[in-house]
Amino acid sequence: MQTIQLKKFGSVLVSRPAGLEAFNAIRPQLNPDVPIQIDFDEVLTVTPSWLDEFLTQLTDYNGGKVDLLPTNNASVLAALPVLGEARKDFVAATVLRAIKRMKDLE
């Protein structure tokens, strides 16, 4: 399992270009055959645009083997339901798994 700590990209993660740049920066360190988990600790805000772009690139890269670690981050919790809505792609699958896991933990 590979863990990506989003705090290493900054405390406030904004915009699609920045999400794409974050993926491009970390891609050389990733093995596309190994599942990835995303850690939101110590991040203040992730915007839906940044997260959508980052997850889209990441899930396309490794075939959807991405999971989101449970978090109380308000911006992430606000974005997830919308990101999982009305689409049938790896991002939706990843997001819906995360939502279900977090609900099960409540």
Partner: peptide, 16 residues
């Protein structure tokens, strides 16, 4: 912390 996070989200999305 929640409000700070969400206000930043709102401003950032609109600005972006």
């Amino acid at each position: 912390e929640e409000l700070a996070s969400l206000l930043t989200l709102v401003a950032a999305e609109i600005g972006d």
